[in-house]
Simulated assay, not measured.
Amino acid sequence: MTTRTEAGPFPSGTARPESKLRSYARLGKLDVYDYYPSVAVALSAVLLPVSGLRPTTIVTLTLFLFGAVCVVVAMVALDDVTGYRDGSDAANYGPDDPLRNKLRKPLVAGTLTLREALGFAWATAAAGAVLWAAAVAIAPHPPTWTVVLVVVLFVVSVQYSYGLKISYHGFQEIFLAGLGAALVMGAYGLAAGHFSGFVLVQGVLFGFGPLLFGVYSNTNDIPGDRAVGRRTVACLVSPKGNALFIGSLCAAEFLTGAVASATGIAPWWFVFLMLPVTALRVRQFLTGFRQGDIMRARKLGFPAHRAGTVLLITANLIVGAGATG
């Protein structure tokens, strides 16, 4: 397999299909914003009573949000760099897969060079580090565990597919869920100044969202990932084993809320509030593994995650309203 070091030029007389700005936005996957509402979940947990909300809390969460955008953008840009170099993106977005839009991978499409992509990735990573450092500095009473979490989160994120290549060595699925949970807990810890078991449960449920469209992508990408040695669960097990794994994740998502409600970590009604997400997961799973439409199942994961996020925010507002009533 041939590795690649630089995006090729456009053929003579061929116009660039889109602007550099649009290509950078594609490289940073700015249209896939599903990690960023983690800050809204954290905010909803400290919002009520509004009279007790400090201006510094809003500033802290704003800085954390912009930092999260920069860090995630850097992470996915570096993922594209690695995918371009090892050829997996060319395989997964090539002519044999007409359902994947090649322009979503600017290096494969040739709309950005490797040098441009690396410069963009490291510039956004640096911006993310500065913004998160500012958020920690401004937070009134940041707990030590939160500061450590934010530092670890930054270091690990840029190693997702670059450097240590966490996603290549069997940890991708854990990372996808852990990133979501850590973003919720990091934002909450800075804003609230203490730990909450209920918010941790929400963080885990939030992390299931990106995980449960990521595993469908992995199912589609098995040939390209296997060719470069990317050890996702989809690559390591049989098709039946992969379906069982994804089904188990759906069950684990439901059980997380159910156990939290049963043990008092969450209100008794929390499990019932989250049932619409479970229904959407059943539909997603059947679409992927009964109807055999993996990419449509992946697409269904986005509204499921976004609905779940709205429900998590709703739960926090209900709890907050009850505490002030």
Rank of each mutant, 00 (worst) to 15 (best):
C235E: 02
V69W: 11
P142Y: 08
R100V: 09
F120P: 00
D225F: 12
H169T: 03
R281S: 10
L286S: 15
V319K: 10
A40N: 00
Y216K: 01
F175N: 02
G180Q: 04
A15G: 00
R230M: 12
M1Q: 11
V136F: 09
F195P: 15
L47F: 15
V41E: 08
F272P: 05
L236T: 13
N92G: 12
D31V: 12
S12D: 13
N101P: 00
A182E: 07
V50T: 15
V136L: 07
G257T: 04
G83C: 14
W269P: 03
L311H: 04
G83D: 13
V228S: 02
L112F: 03
T263V: 11
G229T: 07
Y35H: 15
Y93P: 01
V147Q: 08
R230Y: 03
P143A: 09
A192M: 10
V152G: 10
Q202S: 07
S196M: 13
A45W: 11
A321M: 10
A266Q: 06
T57P: 09
S238A: 00
T56V: 13
Y216R: 00
I174C: 05
T14K: 10
S38Q: 11
G257A: 14
A91Q: 10
A192P: 08
R100L: 08
D89M: 02
A45Y: 14
S217N: 11
Y162L: 09
L200H: 10
G207E: 06
P223T: 06
P142M: 07
C250K: 01
L47M: 13
L63T: 02
V155T: 05
G8M: 12
A315R: 08
S217F: 14
S167K: 07
Y36Q: 14
D225C: 05
R100H: 14
Y93H: 12
A262D: 01
G13C: 07
F285T: 00
G170Q: 02
V152N: 05
T256I: 11
S248F: 04
P11T: 08
G301L: 02
T144M: 11
T56P: 02
I138L: 09
L103I: 00
L244I: 13
Y188W: 08
P143T: 10
L43T: 13
V319E: 13
E173L: 01
G207N: 05
G288A: 06
S261V: 08
L236V: 06
R54F: 05
N220M: 09
K102R: 15
T278L: 15
M1Y: 15
L249E: 05
I318Y: 14
I166Y: 04
G214A: 12
T60H: 11
Y160E: 04
Q202H: 12
G288D: 04
D89N: 03
G180I: 09
N218F: 00
D34N: 13
L27G: 04
V228E: 02
Q284L: 07
F208C: 05
H169G: 05
G308N: 07
Y33D: 13
S217D: 09
F66Q: 03
L179P: 05
M75C: 11
G264R: 12
L114P: 04
L311Y: 04
